[in-house]
Design a protein around this nucleic acid. Structure first.
Length: 581
RNA sequence: GCCGUUGUAGCUUAGUGGUAAAGCACGAUAUUGGUAAUAUCGAGACCGUGGGUCCAAUUCCCACCAACGGCUCCA
């Protein structure tokens, strides 16, 4: 953010606090920083307010703004500062913190309003344009971002240097909303959510299932080439499994419990412990390593109701899960293979531009982690080496590793610039220990394997949500639920339409014939509205000449193309999983 | 889970203290139409659920459920 814009936004946060305190004098103001699209300020109101009161507060802000000129600062002693804010425990807490850090306490004043602040304001309040900000919404926010603390009322405002920029931002936000997967998904009949089935439990419609199955098949095809074996594991397991794995303790009340007649089960929150049991059933030698299991499996987690939403946050999560069992020496080679799959997959999906990788490493406090120094060093070394050799845009993150091992997380940017953490590769020294897994090494002794967890798409639900928004519903040909719509001009062209449709179906192209009793314009419009990549209009002209007229989704037309030429073209697009029409 | 908003037909929405309106979608009939929606008719809603106030509640109040925007968590 430019310094000037930051100063405007931060000054507006002060203005918001001034207006709120004037209108609701017994309110306690806490903190108010500048953020990406404006500013916010957190308050403790004596009685809750709703967004209906924002226009009133906004009006007061504009009134006060006229009386303000600039900001004056003043250094205070801890005693002076605490006396000034005696009625406000939040400010007192902040003052104590500043004192403990040995920093100076400064007050900034504009008009009648004084706030504890470390600065960053406009020189002159004339720099703030009264029509380039707007209070946006109210939300709850925990004091200091900690769930254990009291919830405050946060007021968000949008702010820019000019009214034009503000308007543009609001329009852009509305546009982004139009590609929201929660809107497009049900509209295009890709998925649906039934309140009778339950929150966070989306259902796949036939059209959505086509996309999901294509993605799943593609993933499996890549894995099978790299020596993975497909496995399947049941959806429930005894409580003891998760007590052994440690997940019972880690997931706690996020586990769904299933009560049988005699035994009590858990609906699986992850597949790892199950895959451990598949490995444990064998007596492997170092010659068998590595072993690679793959299973797109649905797991269930009882997420808090407030954090569910659309496909990106659900209770039934289908991970494209896989577990590898290998020696410490093999970690590097295996990670390299996984990275190549990730790169190929995200290139195909059109998400590879602007991605980056977080390399999560152990922190200084080694007591927090499981596994010997030697194994950690080998694993971290192997991960770093892969990042270097594969020239990944990676950022090492010390202290970010899981207690059981270091990992790589892949962050991707979608078409409108939002970032998603999707693929992940994690080393695990914990589970092999807990399940006492071993293989026989070349000295005939038992050795502990390393487990690598990996997911390419992350979860099929979240990934599909991201894809819907990334493409705004305009899927590449190979993913489109309907690839070709055929629109016969008159009834006497229906037979020809069916003939062409059959020719395409022979090659497994997904085709629909729109021959219902509607006007031509309406049927074409219907095909376009459903975002079908190719629309074939068949009439006398085509029948006589034996050619096709095709309109692509982007509006371009192919006129008089030979049937076989079109067939070859579309097959080429599908087989190459091309992003182009 | 917490703070705030919302909940009317399959979808998008209007509206009212006296049980409700429209567009799209759906069905029927006519129309055989060459690229942004042919016409007419029809069917479809215990106004999210349960309580309360009132002669009377979809409308006001309370609780619950669900969705959305945040916070906190997370694939």
């Amino acid at each position: 953010m430019k310094e000037q814009l930051h100063n405007i936004r931060h000054s507006l946060a002060h203005l918001l606090a001034a207006a709120v305190l004037e209108l609701y004098p017994d309110t306690k103001n806490t903190i108010g920083p500048a953020i990406d699209d404006g500013f916010y300020y957190d308050f403790e109101f004596s009685s809750p307010i709703s967004d209906k009161e924002l226009p009133k507060i906004e009006k007061k802000m504009r009134e006060i703004l006229k009386t303000w000129k600039g900001f004056t600062s003043e250094e205070k002693t801890p005693a002076e500062a605490s006396t000034h804010f005696a009625h406000n425990p939040y400010k007192v807490e902040l003052i104590e913190e500043i004192v403990n850090k040995g920093e100076c306490i400064t007050f900034y004043t504009s008009g009648k309003f004084t706030d504890l602040c470390r600065g960053g304001h406009v020189e002159d309040t004339k720099e703030i344009s009264a029509d380039a900000f707007k209070l946006d919404r109210v939300a709850g926010a925990y004091w200091r971002g900690d769930e254990k603390n009291k919830m405050l009322t946060r007021i968000y405002g949008l702010a820019f240097e000019t009214k034009e920029e503000l308007d543009a931002f609001i329009i852009q936000r509305e546009e982004a909303k139009k590609r929201d997967h929660k809107v497009i998904g049900p509209q295009m009949k890709l998925f649906t959510i039934s309140s009778l089935i339950g929150p966070g439990l989306p259902l796949m419609q036939p059209r959505g299932m086509i996309i999901r199955k294509e993605i799943e098949d593609y993933l499996w095809k890549m894995h099978s080439k790299k020596g993975y074996h497909r496995v399947w594991t049941p959806h429930i397991a005894k409580v003891e499994l998760y007590e052994t794995s440690g997940h019972a303790a880690k997931f706690g009340d996020e586990l769904f419990r299933v009560q049988g007649k005699e035994d009590s089960f858990i609906l699986k929150p992850m597949n790892c412990p199950h895959h451990m049991q598949i490995f444990a059933d064998n007596q492997f030698s170092y010659r068998d390593m590595p072993l690679r299991y793959f299973e797109p499996a649905t797991v269930y987690r009882d997420e808090k109701s407030g954090q569910l939403g659309g496909l990106t946050r659900v209770r039934s999560i289908t991970q494209d899960d896989g577990h590898l069992f290998c020696t410490t020496e093999q970690i590097g080679e295996e990670i390299k293979t996984i990275v190549s799959i990730i790169k190929e997959f995200y290139t195909t999906m059109g998400l590879i531009n602007g991605y980056w990788v977080r390399l999560s490493l152990r922190g200084d406090d080694k007591t927090k982690y499981l596994g010997s120094d030697e194994v950690w060093e080998k694993a971290e070394g192997a991960l770093t080496k892969v990042c270097e050799e594969e020239k990944l845009p990676y950022k090492p993150a010390k202290d970010e590793a899981a207690f059981y091992g270091p990992k790589l997380d892949f962050m991707f940017k979608d078409a409108i610039g939002r970032e998603w953490q999707l693929a992940t590769v994690q080393c695990d020294f914990n589970l092999p220990e807990r399940f006492d897994l071993s293989f026989t090494n070349n000295e005939g002794k038992k050795e502990r394997p390393v487990v690598i967890h990996r997911a390419i798409s992350g979860s099929l639900e979240r990934f599909m949500g991201v894809m819907i928004e990334h493409f705004a519903g305009n899927f590449p040909v190979w993913l489109s639920p309907v690839q070709v719509s055929i629109v016969p001009v008159r009834e006497n062209h229906n037979d020809l339409a069916k003939e062409i449709a059959n020719m395409l179906k022979e090659k497994d192209i997904r085709v629909e014939v729109l021959d219902e009793n509607d006007s031509l314009g309406k049927r074409i419009n219907h095909a376009k509205a459903s975002k079908v990549p190719y629309v074939i209009v068949l009439g006398d002209k085509e029948q006589t000449a034996g050619v096709l007229t095709i309109e692509k989704r982007d509006g371009t037309k192919i006129v008089d193309i030979i049937k076989d030429d079109f067939l070859n073209q579309i097959l080429e697009k599908i087989n190459s999983k091309s992003l182009d029409l």
